[in-house]
Lab assay of single mutants.
Amino acid sequence: SAVVMEEGSPGEVPVLVEPPGLEDVEAALGMDRRTDAYSRSSSVSSQEEKSLHAEELVGRGIPIERVVSSEGGRPSVDLSFQPSQPLSKSSSSPELQTLQDILGDPGDKADVGRLSPEVKARSQSGTLDGESAAWSASGEDSRGQPEGPLPSSSPRSPSGLRPRGYTISDSAPSRRGKRVERDALKSRATASNAEKVPGINPSFVFLQLYHSPFFGDESNKPILLPNESQSFERSVQLLDQIPSYDTHKIAVLYVGEGQSNSELAILSNEHGSYRYTEFLTGLGRLIELKDCQPDKVYLGGLDVCGEDGQFTYCWHDDIMQAVFHIATLMPTKDVDKHRCDKKRHLGNDFVSIVYNDSGEDFKLGTIKGQFNFVHVIVTPLDYECNLVSLQCRKDMEGLVDTSVAKIVSDRNLPFVARQMALHANMASQVHHSRSNPTDIYPSKWIARLRHIKRLRQRICEEAAYSNPSLPLVHPPSHSKAPAQTPAEPTPGYEVGQRKRLISSVEDFTEFV
């Protein structure tokens, strides 16, 4: 048969007729292969192709491409040299491709048809291009793949890379869960390890502090508590009631339409708007009261037996805890006409967050109470924005700035309102402590230090009264110190430094 060459192609190359033996071998191979691939376009007849790359030819070592076609129900084999250009295909004639002069020997084609199974398996396991790669995943090629499931790999992101949580363990979102698992493993320790309690022994800490320079003076030496005195035992138990972190309780009120001037209507609300609910979820963490331990979680007086509701929101960081007394989460009882059960919590909070959804101005004093010092007013606006402002009593104007209003988005509203309420509550605590000038409020841990110092002074006084020969370590507060001759004046800087060093040991009130 003659071949018409394309323009620009090399000279004529004689194409030899395939021997009958080659056709029989390739026909047997075509019957084993699956003929249901995917359909081509209507211009080209339905056909199945599979590209198999052999590394070497037997005796020649030339890479070839073998295409199996099922045109007219008769499979045909096409061998081509890759750099050459194939002729145009037609549905009426068999596929013809040019070969190099080196394939002119018909014996070479017979060798190609009689490829060993080793070469076929190696060509099938190679990388296939384009559409033949999808075909190689079918059941027909499963014989050339190794048996057994593939090893499982770690989760992959859409980009093909490992997620960040699997790369950096410290930033993994499941870090707290692993800590819980470690605690569970520790709890399952053997009885021999049960006595080993991690941490620092208080006796060891005391020993280090006792021999430090801070205890060089007799006034700073630790003293032993009497065991037989019940009054001192009660004082030590009272110390446990003062937490070592700051605590805040903040009221949250929802004002519906037409309720801006009605205290009873505001306290009777059992739910609010959708934006109000989203605002609550951002204030803190939802907790169930019956599962809380009052000595570990500050509840601000809420009952854990269901008297004040089942849930509330709280927030904490390293040095403070805040609980929100939310009116809509507290039960509304029919027998309580004046809502006294709610007001006994909300009316005693220094700061209230008022979500004013009424469309009218909310005035300070609508919720009557002796300790309502500051109101954080949240007014929802259009386009997911809110107006946040402050209202306070006249005696609080020096501590709280009420002249600045803020426009905040719904997303950042819980954070801004919480921070403003916490700052206002700190100012309210300082303002409330002014009624007792001898006990200015600095912080909870300073209050613990003052309680310890008062307890020490009482013990020293009782020891001096029981044994008059012992001198008083600290003179009583009601006694007057003996007159001392004025010492020589020293520079102001040295006096300030000495006073600062003494105050650092005794108390921190002056620095606050």
Rank of each mutant, 00 (worst) to 15 (best):
E218T: 09
K221H: 13
P222M: 06
P222N: 09
I223D: 11
I223E: 10
I223N: 05
P226G: 11
P226W: 12
N227I: 11
N227Q: 12
Q230H: 11
L239V: 08
L239P: 08
S244V: 12
Y245D: 05
T247Y: 12
H248I: 15
V252E: 00
G256M: 03
Q259S: 02
S260H: 11
S260A: 13
N261H: 07
L264H: 13
A265D: 07
L267H: 04
E270A: 07
E270V: 05
G272H: 02
S273D: 02
R275W: 00
E278F: 03
F279R: 00
T281E: 13
L283K: 00
G284A: 05
G284F: 04
G284V: 05
I287S: 08
L289I: 14
D291Q: 14
C292K: 10
P294C: 10
V297Y: 15
L302M: 11
L302G: 15
D308C: 06
D308R: 11
Q310A: 09
C314V: 15
D318Y: 05
M320Y: 06
A322S: 05
V323R: 08
L329Q: 06
T332G: 07
K333H: 13
K333N: 10
D334P: 13
V335C: 12
D336F: 13
D336Y: 10
H338C: 14
R339G: 14
R339H: 15
R339Q: 14
D341E: 09
G347E: 15
G347I: 15
F350H: 04
S352E: 02
I353V: 04
N356S: 00
F362T: 02
F362E: 00
L364D: 11
T366A: 06
I367E: 03
I367C: 08
G369S: 11
G369W: 10
Q370H: 13
Q370S: 15
F373V: 10
V374K: 01
V376I: 13
V378D: 00
P380G: 01
E384L: 03
E384T: 04
V388R: 01
S389H: 12
C392Y: 06
C392N: 02
C392A: 14
C392L: 04
K394Y: 11
G398R: 13
G398V: 08
G398W: 09
L399N: 04
D401V: 03
T402G: 06
S403M: 05
S403N: 11
V404N: 10
V404F: 11
V408H: 02
V408A: 03
D410H: 01
R411H: 10
N412S: 06
P414V: 01
A417Y: 00
R418P: 01
Q419H: 07
M420N: 02
L422R: 01
A424F: 03
M426G: 01
M426Q: 03
A427K: 03
A427R: 03
S428R: 02
S428K: 01
V430T: 04
V430W: 15
H432S: 06
S433Y: 12
S433C: 09
R434Q: 13
T438C: 08
Y441R: 10
Y441D: 14
S443W: 09
K444C: 06
I446V: 14
A447I: 07
H451P: 06
H451I: 15
K453H: 13
R454L: 12
R454N: 12
L455C: 08
R456N: 14
Q457W: 08
C460I: 13
E461A: 09
E462L: 09
Y465M: 15
N467R: 12
L472C: 15
L472Y: 14
H474G: 14
P475C: 15
P476Y: 13
S477V: 15
H478D: 15
K480I: 11
K480T: 15
K480D: 15
A481E: 13
T485G: 11
T485C: 12
P486D: 09
E488F: 08
E488A: 13
P489W: 10
T490P: 13
P491D: 12
G492F: 06
Y493T: 13
Q497M: 10
R498N: 14
L501H: 12
V505S: 14
T509F: 05
T509S: 14
E510V: 07
